[in-house]
Design a protein around this nucleic acid. Structure first.
Lengths: 211, 211
DNA sequence: AAACTATACGAACGATCGTATTATTAGTTT
DNA sequence: AAACTAATAATACGATCGTTCGTATAGTTT
């Protein structure tokens, strides 16, 4: 048996699955994980409904896989670039910039995938909601951790949970406003200013501002 | 013709309509305005699907009527109590307290109706989205106006649009967090603290704090 | 080449969706 | 009492939903 040689059938399946999920996250960011229908997805990709279905076994599994795929894209767009910057105030600032950019650039056409789907499933019990809650906790943990590092480095005098709550509030609020209003410059500018002001007032004198 | 006497048929229709919308806002706050289906609504209320449908003429009209009904409930729960307090810092604070209470008390079972539905329709063109955007603008206008009054009275030194953006961000973020996490005391406490701190740092020395 | 496996397809299932048509019932006006 | 009106109901439509089943095809293993 050759372990280096890959099974062409599995490769084909993987590619299909990948294509499905790439389309699925986009649809879900606009129409939600319920609006994401198997028939529509199949028609969009010009594959059979039953073939697509077989990849996931149930609608719920498709939804979970879609959230997982969105998490990867989100991590790549927001988390990775922020972690490339040294810990401290600079990383807090970069994380904020990356998030606003992620929303503004429409990495997902419907704005932040998680704002959308968390609101969709937040009040509905089930595994999808539970996973979304888990991803949210993971995300808030990261923001808080980033803040904690800045505090420990003496670059910020703040309560990390409070700062994380407030920064995240500014992110999400800018995202929602951008869905309802056309003046994106004003909106993201406002969020940026609020974040900068908040960080500025928490950074001790003498600390270099990254903005 | 007697103008004082009411038409019993119209009264009956009004009552039905009222009952439908009362149920509709609750369903929509949990399952969204798309999850709000006419058949389900009719079954819940034990009336005929076609009879219910006749009241609105289309799904879209039902959705619009549902948003209008939610707006009235929202105004009653949040706006009216805040306007009962004198303009200024006290009113800004009361508005915040009322909002958090509105979310926490679950005036709508799925949390804030407008956070839910605005995220649902934000990326989807149509009259429902447009109306939701209008209600949002109206709401943000009110928050900003309330802040402006406090500034004009010398009770707050702040940029009203910025303050409105930040306060509203804290509201919505607490609401979403409460959907995903169980520790509501922590969440709403955090939001309250963030709001108080923000207002405190913007209120000139000597101004009486309402908290 | 034969046996086997993974992926994809076509067709159909019962359920539910929004909507239209037609009939029935309750209430008002003449 | 008759004519009229508004609200409600019964039934059915075509479309789409998630799902199941049987089969064909592409690729691997023996």
């Amino acid at each position: 048996m050759d372990t280096t040689r890959v099974d062409g059938r599995l490769v084909r399946g993987d590619q299909t699955r990948r294509a499905v999920l790439r389309r699925a996250v986009d649809i879900a960011s606009v129409d939600g994980l319920e609006g994401l229908s198997i028939g529509r997805l199949a028609k969009d990709l010009e594959i059979s409904k039953s073939g697509l279905f077989a990849h996931f076994g149930s609608k719920e599994e498709l939804q979970l896989a879609t959230v997982r795929a969105a998490r990867r894209i989100y991590a790549e767009a927001v988390v990775v670039p922020a972690l490339a910057v040294p810990a401290g105030l600079a990383r807090v600032w970069t994380l904020s910039e990356c998030w606003l950019d992620y929303s503004r650039r429409r990495v997902f056409p419907g704005g932040c995938f998680f704002a959308k789907t968390s609101h969709e499933f937040g009040a509905r019990p089930g595994v999808v909601r539970d996973y979304l809650a888990e991803v949210n906790a993971e995300w808030m943990g990261l923001v808080e951790q980033t803040a904690t590092e800045a505090v420990e480095l003496g670059e910020l005098a703040a309560d990390p949970p409070a700062l994380a709550f407030e920064l995240n509030a500014f992110y999400d609020s800018a995202n929602l406003a951008s869905l309802l209003r056309a003046d994106h410059d004003t909106i993201y500018g406002q969020a940026r200013t609020s974040i900068r002001t908040r960080l500025d007032s928490a950074a001790p004198a003498g600390v270099t501002r990254p903005w």
